[in-house]
Simulated scan of single mutants.
Amino acid sequence: MTLNLGAGLLFDIDGTLMESDPIHLAAFNQVFGPYGHVIDHEIYAKHIQGFANEAIAAHFIPGESLERRKQILDGKEALFRELVATSIEPLAGLMDLLEWARSHAIPMAAVTNAPMANADLIIDGIKARSYFSHIISADDLAQGKPHPLPYLTGLSHLNAVAANSVAFEDSRTGIASATGAGITTIGLATGISESELRKAGATLATPDYTNPAVLDLIKSKVLAA
């Protein structure tokens, strides 16, 4: 099989490499509870999932200074890392897909709004470090998702082109970022429904990577006819 010129695979991390959203939800409730917030799944999906911490803080604790917001959200991330450390498992079929991609020399990157410390913990926890040549974190960018900059940066690092690449996302903001960069996107239904993922712009929506349609779509984009 021959690769298309500029082929690449770009993966979000939270909710895409592993099902981490329930742990984030628990951590946010602990941190924002003293401010009177009770965050359920609907609120999480609408106002937190896929957003950068700056935007989350502006929505939930607007009365705090920028410095205090950062302290609070840094504390939330530390709590998340503590809670998730003993329960890191890759989504079903992920490792087989990563191995298939590596066997075909398809370059891969991880693209996340999460702090790099979270990204490192999850990627190392599922033993996927060797598959990704680059990890792009919102820590390093002027704009996070839903802006297309994170995925445009990922494409640039991989020397990939959008037309011959595929992105994997679980949130509306992530899909907006990837499709805004022109990348065909597969939605993982770990946090919102398959219909919501498709409505947000995903070409394909699936519970995990075991769906044969996932590999079929990837092949149609990255392999020469």
Rank of each mutant, 00 (worst) to 15 (best):
G33A: 15
G33T: 05
P34K: 07
Y35E: 07
Y35D: 08
Y35H: 12
H37R: 05
H41N: 07
H41I: 07
H41C: 04
H41D: 08
A45R: 07
H47K: 14
I48P: 00
A52C: 11
E54D: 08
E54Q: 12
I56H: 05
A57D: 02
H59Q: 07
I61C: 15
I61A: 15
G63I: 07
E64K: 13
S65K: 13
L66D: 13
L66E: 14
L66K: 13
E67N: 09
R68P: 04
R68N: 13
R69G: 04
Q71T: 13
I72M: 10
L73Q: 09
G75V: 08
G75P: 03
G75I: 07
E77H: 14
E77K: 12
E77T: 12
A78L: 11
A78K: 09
A78R: 08
L79E: 01
L79A: 05
E82Y: 06
V84Q: 06
V84E: 03
A85I: 04
T86S: 15
T86L: 10
T86C: 11
T86W: 05
S87R: 15
I88A: 03
P90R: 06
P90K: 07
P90F: 06
L91G: 04
A92K: 10
L94Y: 07
M95L: 13
L97S: 04
L98N: 00
S103I: 10
S103K: 15
H104C: 11
I106H: 00
I106Q: 01
A110P: 01
V111K: 01
V111Y: 02
N113H: 14
A114Y: 03
P115Q: 12
M116P: 01
M116G: 06
A117P: 02
N118K: 11
N118D: 12
N118F: 11
N118H: 11
A119F: 04
L121D: 00
L121E: 01
I122D: 02
I123D: 01
G125F: 10
K127Y: 11
K127H: 15
R129F: 07
S130Y: 07
S130L: 06
Y131H: 14
F132M: 02
S133V: 10
H134S: 15
I136S: 00
I136R: 00
S137N: 08
A138R: 02
D139H: 08
D139V: 08
D140H: 11
L141R: 14
A142L: 08
Q143H: 15
P146A: 11
P146D: 05
H147Q: 12
H147I: 11
P148H: 14
L149P: 01
P150V: 03
S156A: 12
S156I: 01
H157T: 09
A160K: 02
A160S: 11
A160H: 02
V161C: 09
V161L: 10
A163R: 11
